[in-house]
Design a protein around this nucleic acid. Structure first.
Length: 581
RNA sequence: GCUGGCGUGGCUCAACGGUAGAGCAGCUGAUUUGUAAUCAGCAGGUUGGGGGUUCGAUUCCCUCCGCCAGCUCCA
């Protein structure tokens, strides 16, 4: 029999392959734990999962046993056959098997349709397919982990046990994938942040990150860059207080819609709240005086520190914290300016992300359950956002019901080292706050009118953005961001004076330079400088002192040969100026 | 918050019912060195907090806190 090749680059094939693997896992579980009830078991981006309701808790050893059983099922090479039943019979069939979750799923399917099942050996599962033609088609399987997951994704439902796994057409591809995962873990910003001494989290403040001196260098560079770009585009920077009275949060709607995530405090027997968002401060800033239609759009930028009570289990390094600085911006404008202004922000996001070499995807998030305002207002806002993004011809996906409580939004998502995506940039359209705060401007007709408002962030939060940056570059930041740009090492103490003078030269030219004059072997100093991910390493000995020519080692490009000091300085000046990657 | 796992000196880990041990980092001294770890010595821990079982707990149990994975949520 000719061995047919599985085309794993085809997403459909990959999905069928992983989906079939998940059925095999379910079959193995049913063999070892017949009392287990089946949830759902789809293919996901890099593998698959299957949910089970079972009082026995799966352990790592259980996963090994299941893996063995999976092997048996593959070796048996059961043909996978599809058959259909009318809805009533399908329900009865699953009831007889005591598959309560499957019964619930069928009940939710439209009436009048026949229900398809897939059968392999003794195992049958409700499924719309497609699948591989037999279990023997699956070659390399790895069960990776077990975790809890709510039935149908709702915390109101029972928590099931979810087994994650992946599969590939060859053992080699599986091994490569697992190796890639291991490599990715080395880029984890929590690990690199510790190694490079950039930031820290302590038990004394779960979710409240500390920025250390070297991390502050990076952060300040980002902020400087951000300020420059916003000034160019007509934003005025403001700073609003962390704590404002409770009344304000009633007006803004946060008290009704966001209370669970807020911290409260008391001052002189008055009730106050710590801001979870910057917008009310910006709104007060707007309201301090009268505006004319000629002033529009008014763009206020704020690096605003906000505090949000996130669930303890959701905290994750710098990616999800309880206090963070949003690179916020609030744009007040005439209704007819909306699409244009949204487009400008999208272009700014794209411009800035490209500087870091990020790829991203955009989501349009629509009206949530807990929302202010009417359906009509939301429809209008959603249409405005759509118009902007479609005029720019950018691809996007729709994230139903995930908007902010005051308006729909366009979200920009970036990937971390393990491929998990994090929302960073956001553009939110808001018809609600201007009403609630009774914002007005005087139109050309001399009458008062209501402005429209955009809330937007580019980085999203400095913290999350720095986390993503760290993983993206594995700590080897572009020169303009690197905490240590030049590290000068001496071969022996005799050259310390020359090295110190050289360092001063770099420092005078505005570079972040450090020397290592310790009485250590050169190999040891190089090793430390490399581990610290210093951008450029220069070794100074007799030859260098005599010639004025220095050998350059880059953390990104390796050994770069020798060049005169001035030439090297010009080169890296240019590298900083262009923000080269 | 939920499910499961984990918590030993600054870091990475060992010991596992008989009152903790290594490497790295740190400090001191020697070495003055040419491209990823020079040698020696010293110091550092009431084993996350509290409670219980036991003659005895880092080890077993309970509880709280924190961390990790996932769910939920979100910048």
């Amino acid at each position: 029999m000719a061995k047919e090749k599985i085309d794993f680059s085809d997403e459909k094939v990959r999905e069928a392959y992983r989906h079939t693997t998940s059925h095999i896992l379910a079959q193995a579980v049913k063999r070892l734990y017949p009392e287990a009830q089946l949830g759902i078991g789809p293919a996901i981006e890099d593998g698959f999962y299957y949910d089970f309701d079972l009082s026995h808790r799966f352990t790592d050893q259980d996963l090994m046993k299941l893996q063995k059983e999976i092997k048996k099922i593959i070796q048996a090479n059961y043909p996978i056959e599809v058959f259909e039943l009318p809805r009533d019979e399908a329900i009865k069939y699953m009831e007889d098997l005591h598959e309560d979750y499957k019964v619930e799923l069928i009940n939710d399917l439209p009436e009048g349709e026949t229900i398809s099942f897939y059968k392999q050996g003794e195992f049958v599962d409700l499924c719309k397919g497609p699948h591989m033609e037999s279990t023997g088609k699956i070659k390399a399987v790895k069960l990776q982990s077990v975790a809890g997951a709510y039935w149908r994704g709702s915390e109101k439902n029972k928590m099931l046990q979810r087994i994650y796994g992946t599969s590939f057409p060859t053992q080699q591809e599986l091994d490569e994938y697992l190796k890639k995962l291991e490599e990715a873990k080395k880029r984890d910003h929590r690990k690199i942040g510790k190694e490079m001494d950039l930031f820290a989290l302590f038990e004394e403040g779960p979710g409240f990150p500390f920025f250390l001196p070297r991390g502050m260098i990076l952060r300040n560079e980002l902020e400087n860059f951000w300020r420059e770009e916003h000034k160019k585009r007509g934003y005025d920077e403001i700073k609003t207080p962390l704590i404002l009275n409770e009344e304000l949060w009633h007006t803004s709607g946060h008290w009704d819609h966001y209370q669970d995530n807020m911290y409260f405090t008391e001052i002189d027997e008055g009730d106050y709240a710590v801001k979870p968002m910057n917008c009310p401060g910006a709104l007060l800033t707007y309201k301090r005086k009268m505006w004319s239609y000629r002033d529009m759009p008014i763009k206020m930028a704020e690096l605003g520190l906000v505090h949000r009570h996130e669930l303890s289990g959701a905290l994750h390094g710098l990616m999800r914290v309880r206090s963070f600085t949003q690179d916020d911006g609030h744009i007040f404008m005439l209704p007819e300016q909306t699409t244009d202004e949204v487009k400008k922000v999208i272009e700014l996001v794209d411009y800035i992300y490209k500087i870091f070499g990020f790829e991203y995807h955009i989501e349009l998030s629509t009206m949530p359950e807990k929302a202010m305002g009417t359906r009509e207002e939301w429809d209008k806002a959603e249409l405005d956002l759509k118009a902007a993004i479609e005029e720019l011809k950018l691809p996007y996906i729709i994230n139903e019901g995930d908007g902010a409580f005051y308006g729909p939004k366009l979200d920009f998502h970036l990937k971390d080292s393990l491929g998990r995506t994090w929302q960073c940039g956001t553009i939110q359209l808001d018809f609600q706050m201007p009403q609630r705060f009774d914002l007005t401007y005087i139109g050309s007709d001399g009458e008062k009118h209501r402005p429209v408002m955009i809330h937007r962030a580019i980085f999203g939060s400095l913290e999350r953005f720095i986390g993503i940056l760290t993983e993206h570059f594995a700590g080897k930041f572009p020169l303009w961001l690197a905490p240590t740009q030049v590290k000068i090492l001496t071969v022996a103490e005799a050259f310390n004076e020359y090295a110190t003078d050289l360092a001063e030269k770099f420092s005078d030219e505005g570079f972040r330079v450090e020397t290592d004059l310790r009485n250590e072997k050169i190999g040891y100093k190089i090793r430390e400088a490399r581990n610290a991910r210093d951008s450029y390493i220069i070794v100074i000995g007799e030859k260098e002192e005599q010639s004025g020519i220095i050998p350059i080692k880059s953390n990104k490009h390796g050994d770069m040969g020798e060049m005169p000091v001035n030439e090297f300085m010009e080169k890296i000046k240019e590298e900083v100026r262009t923000k080269a990657l």
